[in-house]
């Protein structure tokens, strides 16, 4: 009986939160046109959200690529197939690791910072203050940040994949002497623009939507205390990670399952 009560209570609370999150999302959508009319606000946010994760993405991309280069050569050489290293590096980066790892890093770096920023604005009554000045904080604060995440993450994911391919070249070609010509030509012939690159971009757009939504909502919905903000920040990172992994499985099944 007690167990059922707890279960019911938790379910109701989660549903209520999902409802609030949906309303929040809806109100962002209704003010998006306004953001395009204020490009200055948007550019400022793209800059700050993008820059937060820029070096993290560059360095991670390079290292992940270098590791795949090493592992790839070790595995492929067993079958005498080192020449296909380029395909392995590019396919795993563009299809999976680029979108997923950059999304996870973005959630940890920019997502948590967004939650903390909005939560702090709520705690210091900046959001209420705006409302009392008859200025809608969703329009002025939330929507530009939402759109900025949407634009930055796909670009960051492309950056991640490009540096990863470079990293693979460094370890595979420079260090372990895979033939440079076959690294690049095999990659070019096997990677399809639509099937691989566009699908990868679609993935990161969806991840960007999830992370921005979760991060901004958690900040906006946080209890206005320091404990409330820290819990909200943690929830952003954990929930984004689960959501990214779940949607990645779903999207991969849809995009690549039929081939």
């Amino acid at each position: 009986m007690n167990f059922l009560q707890v279960l019911g209570h938790t379910t109701l609370k989660s549903l209520a939160k999902l409802g609030r999150a949906s309303l929040f999302f809806y109100s962002i959508m209704t003010v998006l046109p306004y953001v395009f009319m204020r490009p200055k606000l948007l550019i400022k946010q793209i800059f700050s959200v993008g820059v937060l994760s820029f070096w993290l993405i560059i360095i991670s991309g390079l290292f992940v690529g270098m590791v795949i280069g090493l592992q790839g050569v070790y595995t492929l050489s067993t079958y005498g197939a080192e020449a296909s290293l380029g395909i392995m590096v590019a396919a795993s980066l563009v299809r999976e690791l680029g979108p997923v790892v950059s999304a996870l890093l973005f959630a940890g770096r920019a997502g948590s910072a967004l939650t903390a920023e909005i939560g702090l604005m709520k705690t210091t009554e900046q959001l209420s203050g705006m409302e009392m000045m008859a200025i809608d904080p969703i329009k002025y604060i939330i929507a530009p940040r939402f759109l900025a995440g949407f634009i930055s993450l796909p670009l960051l994911a492309l950056l991640f994949s490009s540096l990863g391919i470079l990293g693979g070249h460094i370890t595979g070609v420079e260090l372990l002497h895979v033939d440079a010509g076959s690294y690049w030509t095999q990659m070019q012939s096997a990677i399809d623009f639509y099937d691989d690159i566009v699908n990868g971009i679609i993935k990161s757009i969806i991840f960007a939507w999830i992370i921005s939504w979760i991060a901004l909502f958690e900040g906006y919905d946080a209890l206005p205390t320091s404990a409330g903000i820290s819990r909200a920040t943690t929830r952003t990172v954990v929930n984004s990670a689960f959501a990214i992994l779940f949607f990645d499985l779903l999207l991969t099944a849809i995009m690549f399952g039929s081939t």
């Binding site: 604005m121 210091t124 009554e125 900046q126 203050g129 409302e131 009392m132 000045m133 008859a134």
Partner: peptide
């Protein structure tokens, strides 16, 4: 409501200045 709020000033406990 927004029109009416322009006629009300409010001073928050924390100041609520945009940081």
């Amino acid at each position: 409501l927004y029109t009416l709020r322009k006629k009300m000033g409010m001073l928050f406990q924390s100041g609520a200045l945009l940081s």
